[in-house]
């Protein structure tokens, strides 16, 4: 069996924001499937995700997406291949769920022309996938946090890109909604590749095929989830000891002493 081609191939990536170095000399490849991005606050996870989305210019190094140099792809073409959902955005005033999802069609629209039937169908599919069809005509500001998060995910699904980058989509969701979203992401991963920033390592162990660990903008580990979500690697990532339990009900990963 030949190994599947990498979704992202990152070579010697360094990124600075406002003159301050954030990412230092990262090199790794991401296989197809779901990749979890882990690390403490300020370790550079969001900056890495924005770099993978092609919206930050690297100070050094190169990112290839499915074999193509990311910085050489024009913005619209890039947006058809890679979608990014930033952390907890605020929806523009007055939008309904369907209006918001429709914004995901932006890279597919012809200038000055309205949505085509194919666009409407893509929006329908996105709303079905997130279970938001019944709420599609509700205004965003009338929804609960979990519903709002699903509406935002509808937007990036309507974008119909092969790669989906999600910045902490599980934050601020209660446990049932987290479980629901994990199921949704798993079902989405059949057709798309997902990179997700995730803090709950037990959820990461169950959701992700591959995990990338960062600390202070440097790469600590990149490998299969079971290897990276192990006590020694996690201790190197977070600088505190971890307990990793393999049980019949799946893996449990927690800081030691909790």
């Amino acid at each position: 069996m030949t190994p599947a081609p990498p979704i992202f191939d990152v070579r010697n990536l360094s990124v600075s924001l406002g003159g301050a170095p954030i990412l230092r000399d990262l090199s790794f490849t991401l296989p197809p499937g779901i990749t979890g991005l882990i690390g403490a606050n300020g370790s550079g996870k969001t900056t890495l995700l924005r770099s993978l989305a092609g919206i930050l210019r690297p100070a050094q190094g190169q990112i290839r997406h499915e074999g193509q140099d990311l910085s050489a792809i024009p913005p619209r073409a890039r947006a058809r291949r890679i979608a990014l959902l930033p952390q907890s955005g605020e929806a523009p005033a007055g939008l309904t769920v369907r209006d918001l999802a429709a914004r995901g069609r932006t890279p597919w629209l012809r200038p000055f022309l309205p949505l085509r039937p194919s666009d409407q169908q893509a929006i329908d599919r996105a709303l079905t996938a997130t279970g938001m069809t019944d709420l599609q005509h509700r205004r965003m500001d009338s929804l609960s946090g979990g519903q709002r998060q699903r509406a935002w995910i509808s937007l990036v699904l309507a974008q119909e890109s092969g790669t989906l980058l999600l910045d902490e989509p599980l934050n601020f969701l209660d446990l049932p909604h987290q479980a629901e979203l994990v199921h949704l992401l798993k079902s989405l991963a059949v057709q798309r590749h997902i990179v997700i920033i995730i803090h709950d390592l037990t959820l990461a162990a169950r959701l992700c095929d591959h995990v990338v660990a960062l600390r202070d903008g440097r790469l600590i580990a990149s490998g299969p989830a079971a290897e990276v979500l192990s006590a020694p690697e996690l201790e190197r990532t977070f600088a505190i000891p971890f307990t990793c339990l393999e049980t019949q009900a799946g893996a449990f990963v927690l800081p030691k002493g909790l």
Partner: peptide
């Protein structure tokens, strides 16, 4: 349309190709 997209969070608008 551009004004409308600029009301989205910046990173999202850029990732949508704006």
């Amino acid at each position: 349309r551009t004004l409308d997209r600029l009301e989205l969070p910046d990173d999202l608008a850029r990732a949508l190709g704006v």
